[in-house]
Design a protein around this nucleic acid. Sequence first.
DNA 1: GCTTATTCGCCACACAGGTG
DNA 2: CACCTGTGTGGCGAATAAGC
Length: 390
Amino acid sequence: MNVPKLRFKEFGGEWRSVSLDSIVERVVRKNKQLESKLPLTISADRGLVDQITYFNKNVSGKDLSGYYLLKKGEFTYNKSYSNGYPWGAIKRLENYNQGVLSTLYICFKATNIDELFLKHYFETTHWHKEVSMIAAEGARNHGLLNIPVNEFFKIKLNIPEEWEQRKIRNLFEKINKKIKLQQQKIDLLQEQKKGYMQKMFPKAGETQPEMRFEGFTGEWEERKLGDLLKYEQPTKYIVESTNYNDSNETPVLTAGKSFILGYTNEISGIKEASAKNPIIIFDDFTTSSHYVDFSFKVKSSAMKLLYLTSSDYDFYFVFNVLKKFEYVPENHERQWISKFAKFKVLVPVFNEQEKIGAFFKKIDDNIYLQQQKIDFYKEQKKGLMQQMFI
DNA sequence: GCTTATTCGCCACACAGGTG
DNA sequence: CACCTGTGTGGCGAATAAGC
């Protein structure tokens, strides 16, 4: 029986096996009159996005008139392997009314099928097997799969009647919306946190923060980082996971009491920093050498372990001081770490440190919780996709 | 004009060689 | 000798060039 494992009760009967070219039509429309000057790229996780947004630059050829002109709602296949998409990615244009794509991509539009059903279908892995059968031997040639276009349009898909298509599509649209809303919630929390970070620490040149907990007054005192922290060279690899999360937020490891902070002697930004000079902090006073799930690999020779020098300092407060700390090196300065201990920071009395530390910890914990929720929704979606399509 | 091969830039990582 | 840092490398994701 050609039926999905999981199905809405009201539906019966087998799904039809159809070839792709019976439900879609290839799009070869060229951008002759330069109708669009928006070069797109396919991102496996972000879908069809313009190149400026994705790469921060335009990587297309100078002459866009030879590019395909894609309209909103149309699909394109990137026959290039990418992480999680061993047979390439098929995405639908949603964010713009139109855009242009290199002719390397295979474009098409839905004609005889619910467009959004098809979109969700291509998010599953059910079409991979078909493509794998037509991909040239070795399956991969410098990242690009050798897939003849006419063969591509002959791949078989399993689809139900239209009203079942619609019902399934509505379910997944709803799930996507839920995930999107959850993401917005997280973004908002992060924005708020940023705002508090600015207000609850003194601005450059000042000795008091704009916003303070009640009962605390007076200037913060100047300390050197070396007063707060000592560092050691670790002696072994600590992390094996390569699941590096490329975000501009400093990775915060919420399990246990350890963190990774990024600093660099070249450019600011955690990505570079994590690769070159990551710093790991352990809270010596609450947990001892408690290794946790780091999100990316760190090399022992390029990082330092930091420990608080005394219990006169609040761990979470110091952590946030470090996160806020900006070090602008003189051009290609070497051995910046040797100066680490001399960097100046402002510190309030212990009770105030504690309050501030706890305040930010609460925010971070909440963000982590919301992030877990989103991960759960995504897992749930993945499971449904696997079972509700064939 | 379509298909296939090559190139390009980025980045993580290993490693060698320099230096206080 | 411990510890930096520069450099080489290979995989990846992308586009372009070459070939048919």
